[in-house]
């Protein structure tokens, strides 16, 4: 098993957001986490990445036989956990290339691998930028500075392609994307899918799941997984709306 979340409770500024999450993810699987606003989807993504504002009060996360919660955010990244941010930040004056070169080599150093030289690195960048149809000019531009919403999201998937994670968490990657950008982003994610990696797609809408087909769908409600199922659950949800979950609390699994 790649990831196992057991009875995870987390809070921010004294408010409990996650109230006992249980989730198992195997290598080769795509999981979708859906749910209404405020249900805790983004909190779950942030806790997985190690954002410090969120305090884990109970439970554990086992990733690749390691206690994930004991690792610093950078070590989680070096162990292969990648978060595609809902709101990617701008870093003026730091080029995409510079960021990625530093990141790739830090990760390689951590794994005891040789650092890439300039040529090898540029070859890697060119190859991966095609995957998300990212114009070469973005490589030398400052990270996300002056990017449109869609460009920022595409840039996240580009970074993901370069860093080649084992566990990718996509936090509302579809928000703010037009249909063409959505297709490109989804294609990128699909092409990166392998037998030995897994993806968790956090989304509010079913739309993205037309392009990234999940093996499992989990509905998060009030900090717990209220319902789990196959890809058809997303369609059912689209049809009936989240009220269906809200009103049908008796069906709660994993409680």
């Amino acid at each position: 098993m790649l990831l196992e979340i057991k009875n995870l409770h987390a809070r921010i500024a004294g408010n409990e957001i996650l109230k006992g999450i249980n989730l198992k993810v195997n290598a080769g699987e795509v999981h979708a986490i859906m749910g209404p606003n405020g249900s805790g989807k983004s909190t779950l993504a942030s806790v997985l990445a190690g954002r410090e504002e969120f305090e884990v009060t109970q439970g554990e996360i086992i990733y690749n036989d390691k206690n994930l919660l004991e690792l610093s955010p950078e070590d989680r990244a070096r162990e292969g956990v990648f978060l595609a941010f809902q709101y990617p930040v701008e870093i003026p004056g730091v080029s995409n290339t510079n960021l990625l070169k530093t990141a790739v080599n830090e990760i390689r150093k951590y794994r005891g691998e040789q650092e890439l030289d300039a040529m090898e690195f540029l070859t890697l960048l060119r190859e991966k930028s095609k995957l998300v149809e990212l114009d070469q000019k973005f490589l030398s531009r400052s990270v996300n500075e002056g990017f449109s919403g869609g460009e920022k999201k595409r840039n996240e998937i580009f970074q993901m392609a370069v860093l080649n994670p084992t566990l990718a968490v996509l936090d509302e990657t579809d928000s703010g994307l037009d249909i063409d950008a959505l297709r490109i982003v989804a294609n990128g994610v699909n092409k990166l899918k392998r037998k030995d990696n897994a993806t968790i797609v956090v989304t509010h809408y079913q739309r993205l799941l037309n392009y990234i087909v999940p093996d499992f769908v989990h509905v998060l409600y009030q900090g717990k997984i209220a319902k789990s199922g196959g890809k058809e659950l997303a369609l059912e949800l689209e049809e009936k709306g989240y009220d269906w979950i809200k009103n049908g609390k008796a069906e709660v699994v994993n409680a």
Binding site: E52, E74, L83, F85, I91, N98, L99, T102, A103, E106
Partner: peptide, 26 residues
């Protein structure tokens, strides 16, 4: 947010600040 973003890409806080500040001075 900038520091966490870079942490999440495998970059230590010290290196992250160095990157951000060097970018700022570019």
């Amino acid at each position: 947010d900038q520091i966490f973003y870079l942490n999440q890409r495998g970059i230590s806080t010290e290196d992250a600040i160095s990157l951000i500040v060097n970018g700022y001075c570019k």
